[in-house]
Design a protein around this nucleic acid. Structure first.
Lengths: 195, 195
DNA sequence: TCAAGGTGTAAGCAGGTGCTTACATTAGTA
DNA sequence: TACTAATGTAAGCACCTGCTTACACCTTGA
């Protein structure tokens, strides 16, 4: 209360407001269904500032996609990454700030930037970690399949809102998924060392 | 060759041309990125006819979503529905006419009609069949999870084009998926009859 | 043969889009 | 205080969008 003397001009605050507003709107409606006027209005900012600070609507989308950290991955042991990711994604309530870019991608799949963001971020993060969990030769493909499942569940539950999965108990979902995934992501005992 | 005297005026042919063109374009670019002028151009038809025959762009989308049959489901025993669906979805080459609405949904997830089409079609077809494969109490949820996996794989492979899954061998994918799914979709022997 | 309705065409309208510009206002500094 | 650069504002431009309208043409049937 005391710290923020209402300084009316603050470029950093404006940038942050635009980023947050756009991130949430893209997650709610997708890229195409969100206008720059919507973003500026939610941020409480003149829309010309969007172009001053981010260049274009695409530039803002790109900034969102590269703004999220990798806290969950860095803080979690590999064998628990899937469980914790599911837990966060399935927990009720509005999508967290961390998960918003995830939903923005699902709702903007047709957009070029969404595809490359998914490939680079998700690919370079989740899949690398998940792939360490098995010693099968096609470990990365198996990790991709797990990622695909996460994406599909998010799509069906939150974007397409299909029942019963849309309102199913998170633990019930997690139990099934983890049990099934353990079949394809595990140290196989059938492969004897060859040397 | 002999049968189709080039009759220049044929409402049915025009309707069909519009439907096919729109189906493919929606599958390639998504609903928002496709304009009515694009559709009319690919169909080789004046764009005003789109509105005469389908009322609106949304009406055309709806027509596409309700135009596909359920041949695969009706012709396939329940225990092979997943395997054959994967086989068709993963087979190389351009998406078939049958699968186009599927990709149209993935690329138009933000669109309202896509969500309801998925709920009604996929929900009332695939899931009902898949749910018969297990006698667990949450059979429908398990079937939804399988559907989510199919969707996620299509999304990651064709829309987001992530490697290695984008160019992976179909059989390799199918093997993993079928093996994992068998864990959650099977007759459980642990449930003794209670009466 | 000739009206009449089905079919195709050209042109354009009203509104929305991303983006730009010219200008006003503020904050920091010499 | 006076200057300057950073920040915010209002207005609008050029284009695209879904959709409509008025009209021309073809085909059919009595």
């Amino acid at each position: 209360m005391a710290e923020d003397v209402p300084r009316r001009r603050d470029a950093d605050a404006t940038r942050a407001a635009l980023l947050t507003a756009a991130r949430d709107l893209f997650a709610e409606r997708g890229f195409d269904q969100t206008t720059v006027r919507d973003i500026a209005a939610r941020a409480g900012v003149n829309q010309a500032l969007l172009f001053r600070y981010y260049g274009s609507k695409d530039g803002l989308f790109h900034a969102i996609m590269t703004s999220t950290g990798r806290e969950l991955i860095d803080e979690t042991p590999p064998e628990y990454v899937l469980a914790r990711t599911l837990q966060r994604m399935l927990s009720p309530g509005a999508p967290t700030a961390e998960a918003s870019p995830f939903y923005a991608i699902l709702r903007s799949a047709a957009h070029q930037g969404a595809a490359s963001a998914m490939r680079e971020k998700m690919g370079g993060q989740y899949v690398d970690v998940l792939a360490t969990l098995t010693d099968e030769p096609n470990a990365e493909l198996r990790a991709d399949l797990v990622l695909a499942w996460i994406l599909g569940i998010g799509l069906l539950r939150y974007v397409l809102v299909k029942e019963p999965i849309a309102h199913a108990d998170p633990d019930e979902i997690s139990d099934c998924v983890l049990k099934a995934v353990s079949v394809i992501l595990e140290r196989s005992a059938q492969h004897p060392p060859t040397d």
